[in-house]
């Protein structure tokens, strides 16, 4: 097995004449927290959907956990967790029932699910709300639950698409603690965000502009390259060249 969790080579997705993701090439190392940055419409979500086997590449190839995302999409799916931009757990099921459903889908046994769910809920401080409908939870709780669910089956890699969008600073902080815990367990984290303070928490970040990766390095190296003091300035220097995000 290679040392990489994700390898993308010239990965491209076109919708008609529009090239959402334009020949991107990068590697993500195992156990890394990889920040995938870019302005709105830069093609981050499209790229992530291809890596998760939700969208077929128009060109190029990628392997995730050693499996080809196009030919072995179902194998890829066995090895990853995914938290989408839009909250996508079942509002009309309780916290416990959502855990049971997704645990079951990944082939966990009832006893195993119960055991892990108890552990997870007490960790999150959600034990009292286990019988609450997910739709009734506040956004911060929903996001934490969605994240915990995406790593419930112990995937090799987890993809997080703007996991902290619209969440308060305290909750964001707690959220990143959860991400670090997951990384400590050996899970590779692939995360998109618009918060530059969060970019600083990543081991390495890439910045996409108009479908292409314009920079890829550790946050400190990027700041050095652009001779600026913050990730915000790095991002601003690159993203303002964008033609797409203007609207």
């Amino acid at each position: 097995m290679s040392e990489y969790a994700i390898v993308a080579e010239g990965l491209t997705k076109t919708f008609g004449t529009f090239t959402a993701t334009d020949h991107i090439t990068f590697e993500v190392r195992k156990g890394e927290i990889f920040g995938f940055l870019g302005a709105n419409g830069a093609g981050k979500t499209t790229a992530m959907r291809m890596l998760c086997g939700l969208s077929r590449p128009s060109e190029g190839r990628a392997t995730v956990a050693g499996f080809d995302v196009e030919r072995e999409a179902e194998q890829v799916k066995r090895n990853i967790g995914y938290m989408s931009q839009k909250f996508s757990l079942y509002d009309d099921l309780t916290v416990e029932e959502n855990l049971r459903l997704f645990g079951g889908i990944y082939g966990m046994t009832s006893a195993d699910i119960k055991h892990k769910a108890n552990h997870l809920l007490s960790n999150l401080g959600l034990t009292d709300l286990r019988k609450a409908m997910v739709g009734r939870l506040p956004l911060g709780w929903k996001q934490k639950l969605a994240f915990s669910l995406s790593i419930f089956h112990n995937p090799k890699i987890v993809f997080l698409d703007e996991p902290t969008g619209g969440v308060d600073p305290v909750t964001r902080r707690q959220f990143w603690e959860l991400i670090y815990e997951a990384a400590d367990r050996g899970i590779t984290v692939f995360v998109t965000t618009h918060y530059m303070d969060e970019a600083e928490y990543c081991d390495r970040v890439s910045i996409m502009v108009d479908g292409k990766i314009e920079a890829l390095d550790t946050p400190s190296q990027l700041k050095k390259n652009f001779s600026v003091g913050t990730m915000y300035e790095v991002f601003y220097a690159l993203a303002r060249k964008a033609k797409r995000g203007a609207g």
């Binding site: 194998q75 989408s84 757990l89």
Partner: peptide, 13 residues
């Protein structure tokens, strides 16, 4: 419409 299908499609179901 709700977006829950994404969470299903990303599983090996």
């Amino acid at each position: 419409e709700k977006g829950t299908i994404e969470q299903i499609n990303v599983t090996p179901i």
